[in-house]
Design a binder for these strands. Structure first.
Length: 476
RNA sequence: GCGCCCUUCGUCUAUCGGUUAGGACUCAAGAUUUUCAAUCUUGCAAGAGGGGUUCGACUCCCCUAGGGCGCGCCA
């Protein structure tokens, strides 16, 4: 019986930098398609560049993947560990006459390229060792192994995103498979690994589209099955400038530190280049159900923080209060210096969360907006609160304090008493509520003030209010 | 220089030859309101340019312009 082959996807970052936003989206698309199709999602670290690959970068990439919630199947594969296998494939190609030894030195090649540049010719290896007799080879000289690529005809990449992309073979030169030190190049390694890993769909950045044609030639030389390709347009910065891989400033963990939720990131990244009609808010479950390769856009997108903020605010509002409080606690503990919340403070934070989370676009804003709950005692006033607490406002505070004190300390009862007080004094509610807010929170905006009073408790609130209450000296 | 790709409101996008070109973000105005938000309502705002094909093009083809990517013994 024929078994329907489940798709095998992979994300293959090179650990020469951190997981940037473009890579995160590539990983997300691969992950979504794998989960959507019931296939497999593998992670391969392309660490064949021994000079630039670092353990820190590997750790950062894995951490970034975990934070984004992109779990991969099976063990993480390290490409460098497979070098021997790559070499064998090159040897096989050599033995079959599909590859050859090239003794050109690097200086020689640079000279060749300089000349081509000067003459306005395309920059390509000229095949100088392609058909030379091996006997002409200098003894004991170092050599690289190059693929004997087709020189005529064309190579066409069938791409689910870009369509049919045709390359004239004369524009594709004989790429290096094995370096002079015997190590495999990326071009060889990817092809061999993807084949060995059984990868059926290669979804990666647009910058690899040209490589696809070259890799196809290796695949053809080996007689291996051709995977489905999908090349995603790159993400640009808000200003339209490129947002390329080596920009560590936009590593995913930076977004975490800025207070973005993984689910918001996933939703945002998903809509950058992929659409499902007019849907904007798409849960991960929904995304898995809907995701396909057909609806991926072909044009590059700019990164827009405003929209990310909007989505993040939405997901913050939708998140459980307790979970959010835990996130804030974690964020505070990562601060310099670390801030540790008492049990009381944490209980207050959870209680105030419904009011707090409606007003925050990021976890950072959430943490800052709740700071009046973390410690006891009179508040330091921010500039606006300072301005609001005029002598008149402080006098009102002095008069309202006993009113607050005399009675039940529930939000509803407090509001009732303050309304009555304001009415009697001929004041608008805001004229009384705002000074209270300023004294209690140190700010001019906060969640509903009577709720906050109830959460903080009578003793604490009155102490804060009285710290700013001033009774004008009586003229009499 | 050569090759490849891209081009709808400021931004992300829908449209798969026939629509008053829709939605979302942003911005503005209004409603609501103890502040700020949230929410609701309304508004501003687009097919790069030029040729074709067609009864009819945002949609198909060509050219131009602009942008991106690639052209390593990097990945």
């Amino acid at each position: 019986m024929t078994e329907i082959k489940k798709p095998v996807l992979r994300f293959a970052p090179s650990p020469t930098g951190y997981l940037h936003i473009g890579g995160a989206r590539t990983a997300l698309f691969n992950w979504l398609y794998a989960r959507h199709s019931g296939g497999t999602f593998l992670l391969r670290i392309e660490d064949t560049d021994r000079q630039r690959s670092t353990p820190e970068a590997i750790a950062a990439i894995l951490e970034g993947m975990r934070w984004l919630g992109l779990d991969w199947d099976g063990q993480t594969i390290y490409q460098f560990a497979r070098a021997e296998r790559h070499r064998q494939v090159a040897e096989q190609l050599l033995a079959e006459g599909k590859a050859y030894r090239c003794y050109a030195t690097q200086a020689e090649l640079e000279e060749m390229r300089a000349k081509q540049r000067a003459e306005g010719k395309p920059l390509r290896y000229d095949g100088r060792w392609r058909d030379r007799d091996p006997s002409e080879a200098p003894a004991d000289a170092p050599f690289v192994v190059r693929l004997k690529a087709a020189q005529t005809g064309e190579t066409v990449v069938h791409d689910v995103v870009q369509g049919e992309v045709t390359f004239a073979n004369e524009n594709l030169d004989d790429m290096v498979l094995l370096r002079s030190d015997g190590t495999p190049t990326y071009m060889l390694a990817v092809v061999v690994d993807d084949f060995d890993m059984g990868v059926t769909h290669i979804i990666r950045g647009d910058d690899h589209l040209n490589n696809a044609a070259r890799q196809l030639q290796i695949i053809q030389a080996m007689g291996w099955p051709v995977p489905v390709y999908g090349h995603l347009p790159l993400i640009h910065g808000p200003d339209g400038a490129k947002l390329s891989k080596r920009h560590g400033a936009l590593a995913v963990d930076v977004y975490r530190d800025m207070g973005y939720l993984p689910e918001a990131m996933r939703n945002y990244l998903l809509r950058l280049g992929w659409s499902h009609g007019n849907e904007e808010i798409i849960s991960t479950e929904q995304a898995i159900a809907w995701f396909d390769l057909e609806n991926i856009g072909r044009s590059p997108a700019r990164f827009d923080f405003k929209k990310l903020d909007n989505l993040n605010a939405h997901y913050i509002r939708a998140t459980d209060d307790k979970v959010l409080a835990d996130e804030v606690v974690a964020l505070l503990s990562r601060r310099q210096p670390p801030q540790v919340l008492s049990e009381t403070a944490k209980a207050r934070l959870i209680a105030a969360m419904p009011g707090l989370k409606e007003r925050a676009k990021t976890l950072v804003e959430l943490a800052d907006a709740g700071d009046f709950l973390y410690t006891d005692g009179p508040r330091a006033l921010d500039a606006q609160a300072e301005k609001l607490l005029t002598p008149e406002a402080r006098a009102i505070l002095a008069r309202v304090a006993p009113v607050l004190e005399a009675g039940d300390w529930s939000a509803a009862a407090l509001e009732e008493r303050v309304r009555t007080f304001a009415e009697k004094e001929g004041l608008k509610l805001g004229q009384v509520a705002q000074p209270i807010r300023a004294a209690v929170t140190g700010k001019t905006s906060s969640p509903p003030i009577f709720d906050m009073l109830a959460i903080l408790g009578q003793t604490e609130c009155l102490s804060r209010i009285r710290a700013y209450a001033v009774t004008p000296s009586a003229p009499a």
